[in-house]
Design a protein around this nucleic acid. Structure first.
Length: 947
RNA sequence: GGGCGGUUAGCUCAGUUGGUUCAGAGCGCCUGGUUUACACCCAGGAGGUCACAGGUUCGAAUCCUGUACCGCCCACCA
């Protein structure tokens, strides 16, 4: 047993450090997190499986992980208590670019580069790094209580998963779902690799749109004149407000030297060096005459044609587009359609290459941009620029501006894979929480585009493709070939690229169980159940896992997707190292405890982003800590007052149960229902809210206070035993309900809970059966009666305070219009009223003639309860009525002048004349509120009036 | 350009199918408190035209339409 892990004397303040680590150790030692397939089958238990969203192997725990893993742990612990074979598979992701960047940075500090090291040594070096500091994040997960089965820890680059990756690549290739081709892809000039569409993050910027003039080649004068005329006519026809953008130069004109020119616009002037054409819309009458005419491309000495293509929007800028096939995806397609040349003028690092004019060689793209503009100016060909808001893609890893680049890459054909995955959402096989993500998911699936999977990196799964040097055959193989399959040659070279990191993580739900082998694990634990992740990787990861699940296993990899938000700072910014606005979960655990961290995160709005103040952890986490402490002390009180005597079961004392016992049992029952339902529906903030108020309000504020005299034996032994039995039962119940949320403090208390003799005691709270709701246990009668008592107590306290009755002095309580059950409650709760409301004597009258409030009863405080009972507290002799009256009169006088002032202001015709209506409204509002206060005070005064 | 979410107390946010648990919680604030579980506490209290404008309805924070502002996602207008 693990009881010994909790110190004997419970300190009045919960010290998480003393309980958390020993408890966690006891759980792992007992093997509660580990599940064997054989045992699942032999017990006939239903499995419940979650695979962790694998954090980057080099990552350090941050709040996002804290939130993500707390949620998963709640679900896993809850299902475990429900008796399911609950398995949570942990692991890490090799994170291609991210990890490679980390190691490259450390190489840079040593003054060397990966190229210096060479591929093999570099990869070796990354492995060293990963084996050394990698995976620490999994250790950190233990600190927050994550009940992962660490015996099953996987890494996306370990042997089994690598085999899965290869198997998948080969299968898709064989089905013609993987192809290699030369296309414009997103290229990061800093990471020197291709990126997928998802990895290129668009960011809105205020950029510039530059207008450039391209002279027409000699011999085009007639066409030009014709086009110029057509353009002018079109401009006139549209009433001077032509479709052309404001401030734009005329699209066709004559240069001072007599040459005709056309104007094109671009946000990236440097790309003009790679232009191989100019395009107009085939529908654009203005430029019909120019189609087929040649343009002299400045700075390059090249001549390029004007073509017509549907892509061109005649309404944008001049309606003429420069075509740069090697540096723009649309232009590339236009070039394909129109047989234009493709000219790549940039090197991999986005400097201009030797196909650019010599003056530009080696120039960075942004330098080249300035240079091009300057040259155009010098040539008199610059037509100005304008501010232009547009979006620019950035590398999701290093934030460098992504360059569209023509290159040879591997792609996955996604449409066929998307079909069943789309259907799964439509027919409800897979559901999303919050449900709004369903539409987002389906929209993406419907418009899915091919996935660029090759990366020009060294860290990752090498693409399993070899090229034969002698016959140029392409060999795609599960095992490294040593000779060419078509010519038998031995001179094979493996494709140098690696696969996108997500190409391994999309297989995660089954690769962790040994796929492609048909393992026992796979059979037992796949498909998994819930997937919990941040909504920002819905496309990157979740969608692709679903596709892979259908493609390779023929079924959905999970049925429920729970997407939570992002943890942000007080200003709503994403937490990041560079901003220094992160909150370190380990620091939070250190200062407040893991339970506090978990509870705070769970009570935040799940489903939307969470804001935390990184500069005031006290403000952010005190509520979780205070709650854990409250529970601790409630438990402490219970344990201390229960003593060592045997505790009866509730069933044994049914006859002796008192109102508050039946009430708290009923409240617990309701809480159980709501908590269970909330967990089913992923409404974790409801769950934490319910439990918070049950523990703090119902249990601590009321129940414990109500039973104190009984616990001291003041009401006889039967009553004492009934209270003890109830106390243990309720504590046991609530600790179970809370355990998934705050496993440590609940376990520490539960282990010390005295247990009724003969009752079956689970071996630990973590595996104690979940309290399934039983609606028949709700006792509405007790709830109503105790509710009335609560209202009475609260009302008396309030009146005492309102009339400044000193803390120490007791009062007489006179109740009118009392009848039936309420009368019985009041009669039997004399002690309670005395203790909680400081009522010395209580007089009951059946009639409701209202004289309690009247003069006959003398000066006093009165109120009416919801059930119609009139409450009256005589104050003669309790407080100095005369003085209180004086005080009230003074206050009334003061208010009166204020009301008078407000009234004058409103009626005085001159004063508010011309004031805006809202000012007048405000004055009226003020007056009304003054008057209300006055009424209240006058009422009070009259109740204190002398006879 | 398309789509989604948000706007409720000083702050962070709940509020499910329109209606006596609809105006809530935590924190903060104010007033009291040496009540032997807890000052990380107890008791009491102040504070909101539920963004704005229309509409539907017997009844709207909730449903509809529009507007404003904030945030996010998708998208090849140079």
């Amino acid at each position: 047993m693990t009881g010994a892990t909790v110190p004997d004397a419970l300190p009045p303040r919960l010290d998480p450090k003393t309980i958390e680590e020993p408890l966690y150790r006891s759980w792992t030692e007992a093997g509660y997190f580990h599940v064997e397939p054989a045992s699942v089958q032999s017990d006939g238990r239903e499995p419940y499986v979650i695979v962790i969203p694998p954090p980057n192997v080099t990552a350090v725990l941050h709040m996002g992980h804290g939130l993500n893993n707390t949620i998963q742990d709640v679900l896993v612990r809850w299902r475990r208590m429900q008796g399911r074979a609950s398995l949570w598979v942990p692991g890490t992701d090799h994170a291609g670019i991210a990890t490679q960047n980390v190691v490259e940075r450390s190489l840079a500090t040593e003054g060397t580069t990966r190229q210096d090291l060479g591929r093999e040594a570099f990869v070796e070096r990354v492995w060293e790094h990963v084996n050394g500091t990698g995976g620490q994040i999994l250790e950190q997960l233990k600190v927050i209580g994550a009940s992962c089965d660490f015996d099953r820890t996987r890494f996306t680059l370990d042997e089994g998963l690598s085999r899965a990756v290869r198997e998948v690549f080969v299968r898709l290739y064989e089905k013609d779902l993987i192809y290699r081709g030369k296309y414009i892809i997103n290229w990061c000039p800093r990471c020197l690799t291709a990126l997928s569409n998802e990895e290129a993050e668009a960011e809105d910027v205020q950029g510039k749109l530059y207008h450039l003039r391209y002279p027409l080649a000699p011999g085009a004068e007639d066409s030009a004149a014709q086009a110029a005329e057509a353009a002018q006519a079109a401009a006139k026809a549209s009433g001077g407000e032509s479709g052309a953008e404001s401030g734009a130069e005329p699209a066709i004109g004559k240069l001072p030297d007599g040459r005709w020119y056309v104007t094109v616009s671009t946000t990236r002037p440097e790309t003009m060096l790679g232009d191989t054409g100019v395009a107009v819309s085939p529908k654009d009458e203005r430029y019909a005459a120019l189609i087929g005419v040649d343009v002299e491309l400045p700075l390059t000495g090249r001549t390029i044609p004007i073509i017509a293509d549907e892509f061109v929007d005649p309404g944008f800028a001049s309606g003429m587009v420069k075509v740069t096939p090697a540096h723009d995806p649309n232009d590339f397609e236009m070039a394909q359609r129109n047989g234009l040349q493709v000219l790549d003028v940039m090197a991999a690092d986005a400097t201009m290459n030797e196909d650019a004019p010599e003056a530009f060689h080696g120039l960075d793209r942004f330098e080249a941009r300035k240079r091009v503009v300057a040259e155009f100016e010098a040539l008199g060909l610059y037509a100005g620029d304008e501010v232009h808001a547009h979006s620019v893609p950035h590398c999701y890893r290093c934030h460098t501006v992504v360059e569209p680049r023509l290159s040879l890459q591997w792609f996955v054909r996604m449409k066929p894979l998307a079909e069943p995955a789309l259907e799964a959402s439509r027919d409800g096989t897979i559901s999303f929480t919050p449900s709004r993500w369903k539409k987002v998911y389906e929209n993406w699936m419907e418009n899915i585009r091919d996935w660029c999977i090759s990366r020009q990196l060294w860290w990752g799964h090498r693409i399993p493709v070899w090229y034969c040097a002698s016959c140029e055959a392409t060999i795609v193989a599960r095992n490294d070939p040593d000779q060419c399959t078509s010519c038998g040659g031995a001179d094979l070279e493996q494709d140098p690229d690696v696969l996108d990191t997500w190409f391994s993580s999309w297989l995660w739900p089954f690769s962790v169980f040994g796929w492609p082998e048909e393992t026992e694990d796979l059979e037992t634990f796949y498909p998994t159940h819930d997937l919990v992740t941040n909504s920002d990787i819905l496309f990157f990861w979740v969608a692709r896992m679903i596709m892979a699940g259908y493609e390779f296993r023929g079924e959905a990899p999970f049925t429920q997707v729970f997407l939570h938000g992002t943890v942000r700072d007080k200003l709503g910014r994403r937490m990041s190292k560079s901003l220094g606005n992160g909150v370190d979960p380990l620091e939070v655990v250190d200062r407040f405890g893991a339970d506090a961290l978990r509870f705070t995160l769970l009570s935040a709005a799940i489903g939307t982003d969470i804001q935390l103040d990184h500069e005031d952890l006290e403000a952010s986490f005190s509520s979780g800590r205070n709650f854990a402490n409250k529970l601790w002390n409630a438990g402490r009180f219970a344990l201390m007052s229960l003593g060592d005597d045997p505790v009866p079961t509730v069933a044994e004392v049914t006859g002796s149960l008192e109102l508050e016992d039946r009430w708290i049992l009923s409240r617990l029952q309701r809480t159980t229902e709501e908590v269970s339902e909330g967990l089913e529906r992923f409404r974790l903030h409801d769950v934490s809210d319910r439990l918070y108020h049950f523990v703090w309000g119902d249990f601590a504020d009321w129940y414990l206070e109500l039973i104190k005299p009984r616990m001291l034996g003041e009401s006889g032994d039967d009553s004492l035993q009934a209270a003890r039995a109830t106390l243990v039962a309720v504590l046991d119940g609530v600790l179970r309900l809370l355990h998934p949320l705050t496993p440590f403090v609940t376990s520490a208390l539960w282990e010390r809970l005295p247990w009724p003799a003969g009752a079956d005691r689970p071996e630990a709270l973590i595996v104690a059966p979940w309290p399934e709701p039983d609606p028949t246990l709700v006792d509405e009668d007790s709830e109503r009666r105790l509710g009335e008592l609560q209202e009475l107590v609260t009302q008396v306290r309030s009146l005492r305070k309102e009339y400044s009755v000193p803390e120490g002095s007791g009062v007489t309580l006179r109740l009118n219009a009392v009848e039936g059950s309420f009368k019985a409650v009041v009669e039997e709760q004399g002690t309670t009223l005395r203790r909680l409301a400081k009522v010395d004597t209580c007089e009951l009258n059946a009639d409701g003639n209202g004289n309690a409030a009247g003069g006959a009863a003398g000066a006093g405080a009165h109120a009416v309860l919801k059930n119609g009972v009139e409450v009256f507290i005589p104050l003669e002799g309790v407080i100095d009525v005369a003085r209180e009256r004086e005080r009230l009169q003074e206050e009334i006088g003061r208010l009166d002048t204020q009301v008078e002032g407000a009234r004058n202001k409103l009626s005085n015709s001159g004063f508010l004349k011309g004031a805006p209506p809202e000012v007048v409204d405000r004055e009226r509002e003020k007056q009304r509120s003054f008057e209300e206060q006055l009424d209240k005070l006058r009422g009070k005064l009259s109740s204190l009036a002398a006879d």
